[in-house]
Amino acid sequence: MKRNRMGLIALIAVVAAVVYPFVFSSTEATTIVFYALLYVAIASSWNIIGGFTGYISLGHAAFFGLGAYTIALVADHLGIPGGYGLFLVALLGGVVAALFAVPMGFIALRLRTIHSFVIVTIAYLFMFQLLAFNLLGVTNGSSGLAIPQPNWSGAFFNMPFYFAALVLAVLTVLLAYWIRNSRFGLGLLAIRDDEDKAAGVGVDTWKHKFAAYIISAVPIGIAGAIYAYFSSYIYPQTVFDPMIDLTIVLSAFLGGMGTLLGPILGAFILQPAQQLLTFYTGAAGWDLVLFGVLFLVVILLMPSGIVPTIVERTRRARVREAVQKADETVPTPDANPAAGGGPR
């Protein structure tokens, strides 16, 4: 019954997202939700390796950039004009990201300690940024690359991008849901709790981590390509941007790392907040300060994120209710410790 209710809520959310651009059709309104949806896909995808296994990658923006450069280069070299066909090329961004993820994951995951993994993933991001700057013949360096303009325009302009992001977000969340409820996902969660014990009970930890790393690269590559198409021009510093990683981790973290709902919630809180903050403070430095302070407050007050905190609170409230009821019917004071004996 609980599962049915969750399904119903998910259905309502998707319907609301479909209806939204027809109700609020201004460019600003659709752009904000477009970015939020894009980050739902990115953060949910990152969550497959970062949240489920606890291997926090700070270099997944590399896949975002790879996707972005893939669509720009393919469209340019094959002479594909702007149009709906380019969304198919965006899928190629995911494929390229996965191909790169194979050697990258192979090296980073050999390190065994999470600290080294984190740092090597940072190295990846900066390597790709430098490559994009330096391989002038391929990437045009700091002058960036143009992506063909779409052949629709006017008030309708945002719509196809919005729905592309929506489809990507829904599919990514479904993928994460499916993994989370599979045997494979169970192995990933076991790795997060205790990698040695997981290996001890027969989980092939290497294969699990490796697969999760590659899978998590795909939706992010596609998201990068969609972003590139949407913004029609890319630069090394905007698509291989460390801030993207920070936003991913913070979204996942804010909502609750390793939960399905967490990254969705996080992206929908963080993206609009970030855009409004930059809009109202004019990016002079106050936006960084406010963002950082917000960030610290959330981490120190809710170290496990919104979703786990709420779940824990409601669970405790239920226990308290049950205890009260038990007290009313059978007034035995020594029943209390047993009833409230959950981990604090």
Partner: peptide, 25 residues
């Protein structure tokens, strides 16, 4: 207390952002 690896990265990143903003100002 818990999850120190992840949280310390986030916390120190936040501190860095705040200081960067202030120095920029």
């Amino acid at each position: 207390k818990q999850d120190r690896v992840a949280l310390s990265i986030l916390v120190t990143y936040a501190v860095a952002l705040i200081l960067e903003g202030l120095m920029g100002l």
